[in-house]
Each structure stands twice: as structure tokens, then as C-alpha cells.
Design a protein around this nucleic acid. Structure first.
Lengths: 132, 132
DNA sequence: CTGTATCCTGCCGGATACTG
DNA sequence: CAGTATCCGGCAGGATACAG
């Protein structure tokens, strides 16, 4: 039988689109990347993912936990201690993500050069937003 | 010698962060994914990337072109014809991206199952936004 | 067909305060 | 420490109209 066609992220109706956005989103990718290198506690993560607010980190972690990519281990001690770590699926996703991140980081000289050329051509008209 | 430390996406000051966001962003990832399978013209892309508006597609393409990931080939014919295709660097990025996309699509059953469990536990309190 | 310009709204996400 | 609750400004991004 055919259970195919399955999930297509190019279809805006498909739930995979939402998950992809959780994973590739602004904070999702960095959070997964940070967790890949070592399981962490909340404020540890907050420090590694430079610039994230408490609110967004919390929100991001919940979304990733819900999608089964992150496991949350809360210990009812005092003071409370909570450890976050990737699930097996989360690891697989994070590996791809890290590959992408390393690639981008490694090729930034090329990117920067391309930007220079583009901006020179267009007399510094803006296209997309600069770079944050 | 040491030109190291180089680019670190975890640092919010680093320009690589901006590029990563162009690449993984809501429309960036889908646009690169669509372009990987075949160079396309504007409205062709618009159809493949279900849900994108003219404005956002245009904006996304410009950002990717500026970063040197997409090449724009405009022919001054009438009616005008413009072809977009990935640069070599763009291809490398898109490959990783596609790998990630395929992985997510293929594992959606697990993701959906995890969501079900999560929502059951939390009595349907919302965490992150559902899925869009 | 391939875009750009303009308007407008929703919601992303930062700041702050508070709880266990 | 580990979060949640609330407020609210800015901008992402959709709709529409227009241009080459």
C-alpha cells in the first residue's frame, strides 16, 4: 500500500512546516546547536546562546520539547535544578544543523566578499536588511 | 599564523549570525530548497514555495543574492525573463538544508507522537505556538 | 512577466516584575 | 536557580496598487 506523499514542507498546510520553523528558527537552531555540545541548565544555555531573553529561551525549549527534540529533566530539589538534553531525534537534527552552521561560519569570508560586491554595485541601496 | 576564532554564530555580534538567519529563516530555507531542485523564475518559485508573498520572496531573494548564495540572471527581453539559480556556495548550503528538511519530513510521525504525549500531559496548555 | 512602493496589522520578542 | 505573567513597541510580512 501507499502511505506516501507523506509530509511536504513546501505545502503550507503541512505540519512539518511548523516543525522546520521551530528547528531553523532564530533561537531554535542556536539552542539545538548549544545543546548538542553539552546538556545544559537553563541559565547556562542562556549564556551560551548570546542575546536570547528568558522568555524566548523558555518558549523555544518548550516548543522543542513538545516536538520531541529536547528532553527536560527537572529535579525537585531546592534550589531547583533542571537539565535539558537532546533526545536521539534531537541529536540527529542538531547534527545537520551544526553541519550547516559550521559551513556558514567557514564560508563567511566569501559571503562578506559577495556583500561587498553587491553593495558596491547597488550604490549602497539596501536589499533585505543588512545583517543585523 | 592564526586567523582563528574567526566567526562564531553564538556571538550575537558576529555577522555569521545574520547570514544563518537568512539561510534558515522562514522563507530563506524554503527558497534555497526550491532552487536546489531546479533553477526557477520568479513566479515559478512563488508557486513552489507555497504561501510566500511577492514582497517576501523578493526580499528573500535579494538577501540571498547579496550573501552570494543565489545568482540572478536577468534577460532584458520583453516580456522580461529572470532566472534564479544557486551559486556553488548556495548549492552547498542548500544540500545541508535539504538534508535537514528530509530528515524532519521523514520523522514527522515521531514528532506528532511526541506532541500528542506532551499535550496529553499538559492538559492542552499551549507551549510555544502550536504548529502554524 | 518581474518586480517596487505604500499602507497597515499582528505578533515577535525585549524589559520588567513577580513566584516557587 | 528556574521559570511565568504582563505590558507594549517595532517590524515582519500580507494586501493592494502601480511600474517597466
Amino acid at each position: 500500500m501507499d502511505d506516501s506523499i507523506a509530509f511536504d514542507v513546501f505545502d503550507r498546510q503541512c505540519p512539518s512546516r511548523g516543525t522546520l520553523e521551530h528547528v531553523t528558527g532564530r533561537w531554535g537552531s542556536l539552542t539545538l546547536g548549544a545543546l548538542y555540545e553539552s546538556g545544559s541548565r537553563f541559565n547556562e544555555l542562556r549564556r551560551r546562546v548570546d542575546g536570547v531573553s528568558e522568555k524566548m529561551l523558555s518558549q523555544t525549549l518548550h516548543a522543542l520539547e513538545r516536538d520531541g527534540l529536547v528532553h527536560r529533566d527537572a529535579q525537585p530539589t531546592n534550589p531547583p535544578r533542571v537539565d535539558y538534553e537532546l533526545t536521539p531525534l534531537g541529536r540527529e537534527v542538531a547534527e545537520r544543523l551544526l553541519g550547516l552552521i559550521r559551513l556558514v561560519e567557514g564560508r563567511m569570508p566569501e559571503v562578506l566578499a559577495a556583500r561587498g560586491r553587491y553593495d558596491a554595485t547597488r550604490g549602497s541601496e539596501r536589499a533585505g536588511r543588512g545583517g543585523r
